[in-house]
Nucleic acid binder design. Structure first.
Lengths: 160, 160
DNA sequence: AAGCTTTGGTTGTTGCTTCAACTAAAGCTA
DNA sequence: TAGCTTTAGTTGAAGCAACAACCAAAGCTT
């Protein structure tokens, strides 16, 4: 297709398959959550991050980091979740520029209720399709990619 | 490979990292192509599929399969590309319901010109971060996932 | 303390994706 | 050949994301 530095055969095969997976997977995650909880995967992820935070509360900036969202995107999403009563926003006392987002009781129940189905979906479409060895390989590969894609470790994915 | 409701430690670590990669990678691909060619990754992919087809022409339905797009999505995208003179649409003679999309000379030049930068980007952010062994593992893992994500092999990713 | 800069967040506009009609050509059935 | 169904594709409306402009509180600098 060109005279430039292209990929070798094995590299090209790996890339074509991998990029197909990256294209297809978000749809699979979104579809199940939309059907079962009327939540996009991103909304679910936002609420999941809040559910693991102390007091189920995070400042918008921190939450944006955890979810790899821009602040405008997060602001809109949290506004929608707030309208549905799943999250509450409160002005931060120490720094009155800041806003805290808190998972409400209702939001907590929503996450609790939808987690099993989501995990089932992740198993069915990813984890259970791989051997234990491949799961380990996938972790190492993802770890290597994240050092470039997310050098500051914004998504806080190291160490649970 | 058990059937438990939650994920085991290693599975959870692998999933968290992998989902972060899936979230971050599209942005990296889009940003470079947008900057260098005013093309989204999807638009690039559409044109790349056309460039490899006989006569650089594909029916809309086939093109939709190759790119995992819905027909409406593809129709809109091709309309935009046509407006920019990169793709041309013509009625199919044998089946007058059908539309053929053809990569124009200008579109061909655009792909030729942007391919090296795109490949460079893929190398920098994915391939060159992995060992040859990991590239092989990634292919096998992606292949396993695609059998579930794309059972009909719509994205025609087999066999180079 | 006045004035500039930085930080934290929200709002509005534009563009793309999805979903739901809708048109038109084929194909089938009687 | 009339009438129904399926297939191919387009179009329009609605919703979410990216970007830019904006406001307000903090923090510096003098």
């Amino acid at each position: 297709m060109c005279n430039a530095p292209w990929l070798t055969g094995p590299q090209l095969r790996a890339w074509m398959r991998f990029v197909a997976v990256v294209e297809l997977l978000p749809g699979v995650l979104d579809t199940q959550l939309q059907r079962d909880a009327q939540l996009s995967h991103f909304e679910y992820f936002v609420m999941a991050m809040l559910s693991e935070a102390p007091d189920k509360t995070l400042r918008m900036t921190d939450l944006a980091d955890h979810t790899n969202a821009t602040l405008p995107r997060l602001s809109h999403v949290v506004a929608r979740l707030e309208k549905r009563g799943l999250v509450a926003r409160t002005r931060c006392a120490e720094d009155r520029r800041a806003t805290n987002a808190t998972l409400t009781e209702s939001g907590w129940e929503m996450i609790q209720a939808s987690a099993p189905g989501h995990v089932r979906n992740v198993r069915d479409n990813v984890i259970d399709l791989l051997t234990d060895e491949q799961v380990g390989q996938l972790e190492a590969i993802s770890e290597a990619l994240l050092q470039k894609l997310d050098p500051a470790n914004r998504m806080h994915v190291r160490g649970e």
